[in-house]
Design a protein around this nucleic acid. Sequence first.
DNA 1: CTAATTATTGAACAATGTTCAATTGCATGC
DNA 2: GCATGCAATTGAACATTGTTCAATAATTAG
Lengths: 199, 199
Amino acid sequence: MARRSDHSRDEIREMALAAAERLINAQGYKGLSARKVATEIGYTVGTLYLVFKNQEEFILHINSRTLDELYQAMETTISTQQVPGDCIKALCRTYYDYAAAHSKRWLLIFEHALPDKDALPDWYQQRITRGFEMLEQVLEPIVATHNQQQVGKAARVLWGSVHGITMLAVTRKLDVVGVDSVYELIDSLVENYLAGLTR
Amino acid sequence: MARRSDHSRDEIREMALAAAERLINAQGYKGLSARKVATEIGYTVGTLYLVFKNQEEFILHINSRTLDELYQAMETTISTQQVPGDCIKALCRTYYDYAAAHSKRWLLIFEHALPDKDALPDWYQQRITRGFEMLEQVLEPIVATHNQQQVGKAARVLWGSVHGITMLAVTRKLDVVGVDSVYELIDSLVENYLAGLTR
DNA sequence: CTAATTATTGAACAATGTTCAATTGCATGC
DNA sequence: GCATGCAATTGAACATTGTTCAATAATTAG
């Protein structure tokens, strides 16, 4: 059976990740299983453990790709916006838009809480910090002070807040309906928080 | 063997929930299993399925108790605060304090995303809406307008935001250390958002 | 004291993650 | 062209999970 389809390790990884994303989009986290992924790509379970250490590492890679997609969407938003004031609002909406459009995969990033002890691998941690840096860049020209500490704080507050509103909206805990309602909440947050900051 | 220990259904439920909370506190979501809970309370798996429909309903009840505890902490905060302005800040800190102190159980509320189709049972949904109502009451005297829509919107923005900051802080994605740093973020949010609202 | 009832069990099933000896297909050396 | 070695792939096996339900044991009723 060996080398039957003659895929490189990287090709198998790619196929497995793509199949996993399809499964998650269709049925959420519970729809994911080693055997299902293996069947989807025409291999068996054993092969998966040849290219991924275990399920945890596998999911980490899925999440990594999701984060990459998300940040790409955000970078597109940044590059198409000119006025710094509008840019932040647009960026926050993009965050929600992406989460809403790919909710199952986006939720997986946060559903999968890791054990306290072992820290996340560096390559993954960097994908998280990247979000801050992006926001900090956009905030820099807006926030009154150029104090880097203040900018960093504002970025964390804004990111956390938009994340929270998005999370509750996606899991339908906000008791609101329609995209516009969520936009209203995000806009209210950004407008008023920034107004307070620059007052 | 039957009736060996002579506990009523409600007593068994209570014991099972208490045991589950202990297990979750100790080892998180993954530490929870029907057999472990059963062993802990001196019964077998079958008995659990006599008092709970399935794992989903079981977890719903665990979460329900967590929410009750959280809201009780928030009500204590409200009742000990006099100045409305300070009250909101204190309330938000309480939300974070509770989440940080009981992180495993608090996380379980959100890790466990439900399937799209079937809505949450009413008794559970009410425990979610209760949070808004609490915040709305506290916001009412502060927000300039008495427009109920505006108050509701502000409550949702604030709750979502504090939730997001708390979530990222608890899962150590905020890249900050220490309780005070998180307090700073929450205070920044509340102060500036409210300043913007009442400008 | 027997019979009916009811609480409780635990064996059984399907599905999960994970491992690893066995197997199969390919390339190389002769 | 054939045998040998290597590496890719398998799939059976194990432990653990949620869930079910006939069998059983303890209690109550008659």
